[in-house]
C-alpha cells in the first residue's frame, strides 16, 4: 500500500452501530474527493457478537479491500478490542471506549468513556457510534468534519439529523478534552523529569 493509504477499523459488538459508522466514514471520504473501499464482518455476529467495519481511504486506487495493517483502530467492546487489534501499526491511532474496554493492550491509546458520556449527555447510548465518529475525526483528521457532517445527515434516519450532528460535535469535544488532559499530563511528566 502506498503512503497515502489509510486503513481504519471500527470494532465493537453488534448493535453499537459501527457498520453504519463505517458507511458514513466511507461516504465522507468520497465527499473529500478521496477513493474509498468499505467492508464489514457480516452475519449473526452483527447482531450481538464482535463486529467490525473496515474502511480504506486513499488518494490513488485501492486494490485489496480488507485492512491488513491498520492505521486507525476504534474499539467499543473488550471482545472486539482483543479480537481485532492484532494488526495495528506501531504508530497507529488506538481509540477505545473505556465504558466497555477495561484492559487496553497499549499505553498510548486515546481512552474516552464514549458510551457512558453519550448516555449522560443524551440519555441513551444510541448515538455512541456518531459520538465515536466525532472522536475519530478530531483524533486523526483523515476525513474532514464538514464531509462527515454531510454524510451523517445523509445516512441517519430522517428527522434525527439534528441530534446526530449534536452527537458528532459532542464527540469532537470529548476528543479535544482528552487531548488537552493528555498534553497536560505529558507536560507534567516532562516537568517532573527536568
Amino acid at each position: 500500500m502506498s503512503q497515502t493509504t489509510t486503513e481504519i477499523r471500527l470494532a465493537g459488538s453488534g448493535g453499537q452501530g459501527l457498520i453504519t459508522g463505517g458507511i458514513i466514514l466511507a461516504e465522507a471520504a468520497i465527499l473529500d474527493h478521496k477513493n474509498v473501499v468499505q467492508s464489514q464482518s457480516y452475519g449473526p455476529e452483527a447482531r450481538g457478537g464482535a463486529s467490525r467495519a473496515e474502511i480504506i481511504i486513499a488518494e490513488g486506487p485501492i486494490f485489496f479491500p480488507k485492512a491488513t495493517w491498520v492505521d486507525i483502530f476504534l474499539a467499543m467492546s473488550q471482545k472486539a478490542c482483543d479480537q481485532y487489534s492484532f494488526d495495528i501499526k506501531n504508530d497507529g491511532i488506538f481509540i477505545v471506549d473505556t465504558t466497555y474496554v477495561k484492559q487496553i493492550p497499549t499505553s498510548s491509546a486515546v481512552a474516552i468513556p464514549i458510551s457512558a458520556a453519550t448516555r449522560e449527555k443524551f440519555g441513551k447510548e444510541l448515538f455512541s457510534n456518531i459520538v465515536a465518529l466525532g472522536v475519530l475525526c478530531e483524533a486523526c483528521k483523515v476525513v474532514s468534519g464538514k464531509a462527515l457532517k454531510a454524510a451523517i445527515s445523509h445516512r441517519v434516519p430522517k428527522g434525527t439529523e439534528k441530534i446526530n450532528l449534536e452527537a458528532f460535535t459532542f464527540g469532537q469535544k470529548l476528543a479535544r478534552e482528552a487531548q488537552k488532559n493528555h498534553n497536560e499530563a505529558d507536560s507534567e511528566a516532562i516537568a517532573a523529569d527536568t
Binding site: A26, A29, V37, S39
Partner: peptide, 9 residues
C-alpha cells in the same frame, strides 16, 4: 460475497 458486500466509490 466480498464483491457483493463491499462498498466502494
Amino acid at each position: 460475497e466480498v464483491i457483493a458486500h463491499m462498498r466502494a466509490r
